[in-house]
Amino acid sequence: MSNPLISARGLTKKFGDFTAVNGIDFDVFKGESFGFLGPNGAGKSTAMRIIGATSQRTSGTITVLDKDPEINGPQIRAHLGVVPQQDNLDMQLSVAENLYIYGRYFGLPRKFVKGKVDELLAFAQLEEKRDAKVETLSGGMKRRLTIARALVSEPEILMLDEPTTGLDPQARHILWDRLFRLKEQGVTLLITTHFMDEAEQLCDRLIVMDKGSIMAEGSPASLIKDYSTKEVLEVRFGSDRNQSMADQLRAMCDRIEELPDRVLMYTEDGEALLEKIYAANLHPKTSLVRRSSLEDVFLRLTGRTLIE
């Protein structure tokens, strides 16, 4: 395998007594889509800021494009495209102007940037909004513009911090489509998310983070295989009965998780398990058989759900 574009060993970041990132190791290779999955406060964004050479580590080592972000910040940032959690667009300028001025910050020639603006407006499906003020755009449009902006310098690595947080389902799907096209083209993507479906759709490989530490690493499929069963049966007996039923249910499958509103039963065959429950004369109010997801992996690793 070729040299990694990003390589971190024992990467740590402390804010006073609080440890935001706690000695993590990871490598990101060219052309892969790498994810940080974890709940809010897991240290994902802090790790991204260290990689993006805008925040200094407390200890450990990291190289980005074979350089140290602490020493070669501007040289590294010259080859990164950053999509922050909050769309920090220039609200007073038009859509096209936002792309243009951002390109100029990279020292790109005027003529090149002007051509690039047209190309990126098409990519972001914002051609008709070219001269509109940014403040008039919808949340999804702003997000697409922020992603287009990050591509203006044709970066080596595109970094996306919670790319679809706060968007409605339709806007999320449009955005995923755009990102998936980039992934297909071999653009190296670095994504943080607390949405397991987003991580499953977009990431070739990911690390699961909690409280600043890495809990597991692998492809979405391998993580599910290693830390969960093939299927999950969700049953609801009513919030007052879920707990009392748990002991009986536990004996019927590999593992169960009791959540406040439902019980999750881990099994290789959900339908067969459901039949077994009915045969035992237990009658859940609702039941659902589904495939295991990264949410189940996270639950297994931390005992908590991703969104709490």
Partner: peptide, 23 residues
């Protein structure tokens, strides 16, 4: 619509030395 022009790594175009002097 095509995005075939979305490329990576314009090492020649992005000039951090130029940004350093004119940023």
């Amino acid at each position: 619509m095509s995005i075939t022009n979305i490329r990576q790594g314009s090492l020649v175009l992005v000039d951090s030395a130029k940004v350093q002097s004119r940023g």
